[in-house]
Amino acid sequence: MTTKIDVGFVIPERVVLIDRQMLKAYADASGDQNPIHQNEEFAVSVGLPNVIAHGMLTMALVGKYVTDWSGGTASVKEFGARFIKPVIVPAGEKVDLTINGTVTEVSGDQIKIDLVATSAGIKVLGMAKAVVIKK
């Protein structure tokens, strides 16, 4: 049985925890070794409050939220976001990335989703949207 998805459908919220270890793993997996994502002294020296997560790590985690709902990595057709605020990751802490999604358009087999991502109550992504073909 296929469940019909209507506009306004709310995808259950997910909270992912991000720590320095995850930033190191993402740096190695993505090749983005910018020290603002690993070295606190450097991050502060360039005017940041602390080490920040890669915007693309945040986006990858939101992507995982989307693909878990839509039926796997192959289901995403479009995915975009603006990086409006950093996810700040102090040493020894796990910070939240809280993700919500709502269906805004259903057209044929394509479903458009508006996504909201916050950390410590602050919105970190703007204009975050995905288009998927749900399996």
Binding site: G55, M59, K77, E78, R82, F83
Partner: peptide, 11 residues
């Protein structure tokens, strides 16, 4: 001194 402003993919 680069930061990432936004990103979009079409797959």
């Amino acid at each position: 001194r680069l930061v990432h402003g936004d990103q979009k993919f079409e797959i």
